[in-house]
Design a protein around this nucleic acid. Sequence first.
DNA 1: CACCCGATTATCT
DNA 2: GATAATCGGGTGT
Length: 195
Amino acid sequence: MKILKQAFYQRDTALVAQELLGKIIVRVIDDTIILKGRIVETEAYMGIYDEASHAFGGKRVRNAPLFGPVGHAYVYFTYGMHFCLNFVSRAQGIPAGGVLIRALETIQGIEYMHSKRRMKNLATLTNGPGKLTQAFSIERALNGIDVTKKGPLFVIDAPPIHTHDIVAATRIGISKAADELLRFYIKGSPFVSRS
DNA sequence: CACCCGATTATCT
DNA sequence: GATAATCGGGTGT
């Protein structure tokens, strides 16, 4: 089990968004419950020049993690009821950036996720940014934590997805910069939020 | 302080 | 396809 280190995240945000596909998110709860999920869908938010990014308009209290060290989590609350998970990443010299995790394929801990989400079929357990955070109990307390070392949340390496198995598409749920192809998902995965 | 609206989801027609 | 649920941050008065 090899944890992805800071250097992985210290690269162009769009590249990191693609390379995160196939990697494994590990969530440890109370040092006992272990949940694992394979990343199958991501979106890149390029920072202060990306109108769709929370970092657009500059650094504020809420978006501060996007300007902080790479390889940390940015967890935000939205629509009055959902949390979304990002990993801070950007190339050297770029002021802000992050990758939104939009969908996971459950690997371990299905029973726990079922208890958190009263969903009948497996396919709808983690196929959306707000769904996976609920299934994995990812909320405010995890905002800003370092995901490059063992702890309540970290990411481990896995074989890369071949370029021809990655689909680039427009990002979902945004009104500005809506034509940029900054959403990426694994072709054919039944766990993607939308194809 | 009022108002707007969002990196969403479940549920209904 | 449409909409309610639900709330915090940002903006303007």
